[in-house]
């Protein structure tokens, strides 16, 4: 027989008949007895589980509080809008005051994503409205009438004679004179008389 084959059989035979060390069972039973006296593994795992649940609940409450605090900080910005801007005369003050209150209270009834969108949108409106009130954004100039321009020019000059020219009588006389000059200039020429 091949010595290698003999060696294989000897190795497998040795593995098959390996005897456990003396006293192994007693040692294992002692270990099991010690482990059984300890607090139950299920109780320990339940403790760990309860600790994990308590930790997660704490984190959730903290997240809720921080979300609520952020909303509280962002809500007054929206609600003070009508106070900074004078409402138009045709809108009653009560209707202006109630509208931002509804906007500020609405996010608490919606999911977190909707809250973020609503907290961003009023700020954008506020910025657009406050820009109109800045000094660097005056109202567009209204064109003055000719009379107003004359009055402005004469008022700045301070000349009493010029001011008197804008009176109705003077103005009527001036217009009458201009009309006469016009008629005289464009009047038809009589050829016979001129010759």
């Amino acid at each position: 027989m091949n010595p290698d084959h003999n060696a294989v059989d000897r190795v497998l035979d040795a593995l098959r008949h390996a005897a456990p060390p003396a006293g192994m069972e007693r040692r294992i039973l002692n270990t099991l007895e010690i482990e059984a006296r300890r607090p139950s593994l299920s109780v320990r795992s339940r403790k760990t589980w309860m600790t994990t649940v308590a930790y997660c609940a704490g984190l959730f409450v903290a997240a809720l509080i921080s979300t609520f605090t952020i909303q509280r900080h962002s809500a007054p910005v929206v609600s003070t809008l009508p106070v900074a801007q004078a409402p138009p005369s045709n809108i009653s003050r009560s209707s202006v005051a109630t509208t931002p209150t509804m906007v500020a209270a609405a996010p608490t009834l919606h999911p977190h994503s909707a809250t973020v969108q609503r907290s961003v949108q009023p700020r954008r409106v506020e910025m657009a409205q406050s820009e109109d009130m800045l000094v660097s954004h005056p109202a567009p100039p209204i064109p003055l009438t000719e009379q107003e321009r004359l009055l402005l020019r004469y008022g700045r000059g301070g000349n009493a004679g010029d001011l008197a020219q804008i009176s109705n009588d003077r103005k009527a006389a001036k217009e009458e004179q201009d009309a006469a000059e016009f008629q005289a200039f464009f009047a038809p020429i009589e050829i016979g008389e001129s010759e």
């Binding site: 593995l15 390996a18 005897a19 456990p20 060390p21 192994m24 040692r27 294992i28 270990t31 099991l32």
Partner: peptide
């Protein structure tokens, strides 16, 4: 079953102390 488990672990580990540890861990 400890003897069978010991031989089983010993066939893989070929160490008596390691095999005994495996048997103990099994019953734990």
């Amino acid at each position: 079953h400890s003897a069978l488990l010991f031989r089983l672990a010993h066939s893989l580990l070929r160490s008596r102390s390691d095999a005994e540890d495996v048997v103990q861990d099994t019953f734990l």
